[in-house]
């Protein structure tokens, strides 16, 4: 299973970025291979409007099975992610990737829209 986190950096000790649209990185964890892939999203800083859809487009390309983030994605991003039937979990903002992963495994994260 491929799990995407909105993150502030790489590895287990990085933090989950609470923002979806304006997150600096997506960190993908594949639990089959136990490998991380860090995807740079910092170009979003230059996007004036529509950061949510732009990041959702990226998630589409990355095609994870699950997305874990902090706040729920805003309306536009949410409608795209719904269209993609993406499984979203929220409420992990500020946790480390490890904490968020464990919380997800233990069914402690809230389901997003």
């Amino acid at each position: 299973m491929k799990i995407a986190f909105t993150s502030t950096g790489d590895g287990w000790d990085a933090k989950v970025d609470p923002r979806f649209g304006r997150t600096d990185y997506f960190l993908i964890y594949d639990d089959a291979t136990e490998a991380f892939t860090l995807v740079d999203n910092t170009e979003i800083r230059s996007v004036e409007h529509g950061a949510g859809p732009k990041s959702a487009e990226k998630i589409f390309e990355l095609a994870p099975d699950v997305l874990i983030t902090g706040n729920g994605p805003g309306g536009n991003a949410a409608s795209i992610l719904t269209k993609m039937k993406m499984k979203i979990y929220v409420g992990a903002g500020g946790m480390s990737i490890r904490e968020a992963y464990n919380a997800f495994k233990n069914n402690e994260l809230q389901k997003g829209v």
């Binding site: 529509g50 859809p53 732009k54 589409f60 309306g75 536009n76 269209k83 993609m84």
Partner: peptide, 18 residues
Amino acid sequence: LYNAVIRLGDYILVMPEL
């Protein structure tokens, strides 16, 4: 230039709000 038109694979999505 407003990111109101997004391509998801074989789909084109228009976001009227943007």
